[in-house]
Amino acid sequence: MENMHIVFWLLKDISWCMIWKPLGVAMIFPTLIISIVIAWRTRQFMSELCHNVAISVWISANSYWMISEFFHFDEHHIWGGITYKHLALIPFITGLLILMYFYLWWQPRNKEETEIIEA
């Protein structure tokens, strides 16, 4: 499943690069759904869960950004210098915050559990 996930993700990004709108939009669904399934399956391991949820929100941000470019609303201004493309920062930052939580808060307090998983 993880290997197919990469294939879908690459097809989505190649479609974005080549401006193949139907394929790019279609590839959002299997890419995102599989990333969520992977996160769910690894939920018993905090390290894997945090990284896989961060990947899921990254795919969401990336997909929104692609759609905003495909349908030409990426450069429309919301307020001041902020455009609709900048809204992709919300899930990007969410993923970063999840990883910061794991590395700065959870992992230092659960060293034994992290060492067992890595062994």
Score class of each variant (00 low, 15 high):
Pro22His: 05
Gly80Ala: 08
Pro91Leu: 11
Val37Glu: 01
Thr31Tyr: 01
Gly81Val: 07
Gly24Leu: 04
Cys50His: 03
Met100Thr: 13
Ile116Gly: 02
Phe73Asp: 03
Phe45His: 09
Leu96Ala: 14
Val37Arg: 13
Ile19Ala: 04
Met27Glu: 00
Met4Leu: 14
Ala61Tyr: 04
Ile90Pro: 14
Ile55His: 02
Ala39Tyr: 04
Gly95Thr: 01
Gln107Asn: 09
Phe29Gln: 05
Leu104Asn: 14
Arg43His: 06
Cys17Gly: 11
Leu49Cys: 07
Gly24Gln: 04
His76Cys: 01
Met4Arg: 05
Glu48Phe: 13
Val37Ala: 00
Met100Leu: 14
Thr42Glu: 07
Leu99Val: 05
Glu2Gly: 08
Leu87Glu: 03
His76Pro: 02
Phe71Val: 02
Glu2Arg: 07
Lys85Leu: 10
Met66Val: 07
Ala26Val: 06
Ile98Gln: 10
Asp74Cys: 12
Ser15Ala: 12
Tyr103Gly: 12
Ile33Phe: 15
Met4Thr: 04
Ser15Arg: 05
Arg43Ser: 15
Tyr101Phe: 15
Arg43Ile: 13
Lys21Pro: 04
Trp9Leu: 02
Lys21Ser: 00
Phe73Ala: 11
Asp74Arg: 12
Asn52Pro: 08
Ile59Leu: 09
Tyr84Lys: 04
Val25Cys: 07
Leu10Met: 08
Arg43Tyr: 00
Asn62Ile: 12
Ile19Thr: 08
Ile38Arg: 01
Met18Pro: 01
Ala39Met: 06
Ser63Arg: 09
Phe8Tyr: 09
Ala26Glu: 03
Ile67His: 03
His77Asp: 06
Thr42Pro: 00
Ile19Leu: 11
Met100Pro: 07
His77Ala: 13
Lys12Arg: 13
Val57Asn: 01
Ala54Glu: 02
Ile59Val: 13
Asn3Asp: 05
Val7Thr: 08
Lys111Leu: 15
Asn3Leu: 13
Phe8Pro: 02
Glu2Trp: 10
Ser68His: 00
Ile34Val: 07
Val37Ile: 15
Glu2Cys: 03
Asn62Asp: 15
Thr42Val: 00
Glu112Tyr: 13
Pro108Thr: 14
His86Asp: 14
Gly81Lys: 15
Ile28Asp: 00
Ile14Asp: 05
Ala26Asn: 02
Phe92Pro: 04
Val53Thr: 08
Ile14Glu: 08
Trp65Arg: 03
Phe70Glu: 02
Asn52Tyr: 14
Asn52Trp: 13
Trp106Gly: 13
Thr42Asp: 07
Val57Met: 05
Trp40His: 07
Ser35Thr: 06
Met27His: 05
Arg41Thr: 08
Ile82Gly: 04
Ser63Trp: 00
Leu87Tyr: 04
Gln44Val: 12
Asn3Tyr: 11
Leu97Ala: 15
Leu87Asp: 01
Cys17Glu: 05
Trp40Leu: 07
Tyr101Trp: 15
Leu49Asp: 02
Ile36Met: 06
Ala88Phe: 14
Tyr103Ile: 06
Leu23Thr: 01
Ala54Phe: 04
Ile59Asn: 11
